[in-house]
Design a protein around this nucleic acid. Sequence first.
DNA 1: CAATCTTAGCGACGCCGTGTCGCGAACCGA
DNA 2: TCGGTTCGCGACACGGCGTCGCTAAGATTG
Lengths: 193, 193
Amino acid sequence: MPRIDAPTVAEHRAQQRRAILDAARALLAEHRRAPTLAATAQRAGLARSSIYRYFASQEELLAAVVADVFPAWAATIRSRVEEAHGPGEKVWAYVRANLDLFTSPEQDVATALSEVVDPGILREPVEAFHAELRRPLVAALAELGEPCPDLAADVVEAAILPVARALTADGSTLDPDDARAVLRRLLGGYLGL
Amino acid sequence: MPRIDAPTVAEHRAQQRRAILDAARALLAEHRRAPTLAATAQRAGLARSSIYRYFASQEELLAAVVADVFPAWAATIRSRVEEAHGPGEKVWAYVRANLDLFTSPEQDVATALSEVVDPGILREPVEAFHAELRRPLVAALAELGEPCPDLAADVVEAAILPVARALTADGSTLDPDDARAVLRRLLGGYLGL
DNA sequence: CAATCTTAGCGACGCCGTGTCGCGAACCGA
DNA sequence: TCGGTTCGCGACACGGCGTCGCTAAGATTG
């Protein structure tokens, strides 16, 4: 068991796991695509093969990254929706909360995760948490009398993405208020706002 | 120059190119992801390395597949939009034309191409033609007085995708009319319908 | 304290993907 | 007929992921 820098092995393990997770998250945010294990390992300061001591596969590692980020995100959205009064307001609160998250300090990961609708390795872990995250939206839509709340929720969420992308694009000069206004106009009739 | 089955070399070349293109298209439709060169070559009946006699890279091959499919698609959409009267109707015609294409005989490729929003190799060629395809939508939105017609077009197109996916999903029991209704309710206020 | 067990870390390997290279063979034109 | 062109192909290089076996350092137990 080569060089251990923490007092105990258990702590060392926790530190290494964190280092790998952080490295993967940073690379995901930078490149907006699933990071390679080689790059992740280099950034975390260990050998590529050693990653497998902590995660069974690249997919599991990425799922762990997602699991690391989503809970706080979901909690924020849920509370924002709960603060709103009436189903239409709740849907709008959901939309705004999402847009705010995309332009928040966690913007990098949030954007990257959504950008990567990759049919590849990131898709499955992201979608698992997605189902959890969108529950308040589905509920609000059902309350609005929408016969297909799940499908409608898909549509609303899909509509949010391009706006978020436009807001976080590199040389974007788009005013956040204008961006919100586009969504508001588009979904406005439905929301009764 | 081994075995040539066509009268002339030029015809043989054209036939081979077509065979590769068709193989790639079929595989794309089947697996909804960029086909490997090995699989494409096997299906087209030549060696993997021979594909490079016809296409400089996998990316160029896939771009050619896209270029092969899009023109007819774009023409259909354009004519459907032109048939509509008034900007709101045009937007709705654009949406309906897209949904119809997803459930048409070319459904396989259309769905696959949209499904593959892959940040990977298919993305660039698809987006190039996409800009061309959506022009009538942008025009109609601008006519509606939308201040950010490009962004709004992004949103409308993004909204179409989940509905198309739901319609073409494997065990889908969704009524196409219900699906359209979801989009109509969501965009309805905006379209003034 | 020492023998033993456990296990982190690592390099080497296998497999599969893309893209390149050189050779042989077939077609074409002079 | 004969040389040039180029098609088709296997071999190769390179870079991904995942596995294996060795080494050595910590943990455990007597």
